[in-house]
Amino acid sequence: MNNEDYGYDYDYLFKIVLIGDSGVGKSNLLSRFTTNEFNIESKSTIGVEFATRTIEVEGKKIKAQIWDTAGQERYRAITSAYYRGAVGALIVYDISKSGTYENCNHWLKELRDNADDNVAVGLIGNKSDLAHLRAVPTAEAKNFASENELLFTETSALNSENVDQAFRELITAIYQMVSKHQVDLGDSGNNAAAAPKGPTISLTPTPNENKKSSSSNCC
């Protein structure tokens, strides 16, 4: 967790959830994206943690607040409570373990059941560096992704291949949806179905106050 997690220096705040089986590399994808770190023996995630990174898309500062979850089945009831208000989700599997890919269907359903309807979803096949152990063909996953209207990328948190790109793609997709939605709202004013339920602050541009969060670890 860094100070940026709590800052206000952004135009948009997007809540994104990272889901998928245990051990597929969610936490390392997150640390690679937010702090460019990879730890071969990072602690397993218990419950839910989050980290943020602000990137620029089409001239707007977008703060991605990414919630990382425990993968073990018994945590699902708890982690799914955190899907609320998410505008994006990444479902991660391990290309060297077919079981983790097969479970993606399950994760997708979990998401559809618990998240807002218009959540943008990306499918990520992680550990692409383990090509010699590949168990899930790229074409098959790509197919699954297009059938379900998901973005798709193969990444490696280990050698950072495609990691930034995968997150960027998702964030851009969300941004386009949001800006289109705002235009639509201006046009017809009744495209409420595309908006997240309730007045979510995440989709409202915040004034670009350069107010620094207090996270000056005092005391």
């Binding site: 709590y6 705040l13 809540k15 607040q65 409570a81 609320r84 208000g85 969060s213």
Partner: peptide, 14 residues
Amino acid sequence: EYDLNVANFENIPD
């Protein structure tokens, strides 16, 4: 922290 972050999250539980 509450005062500073109240608009930094999508919802209160977060």
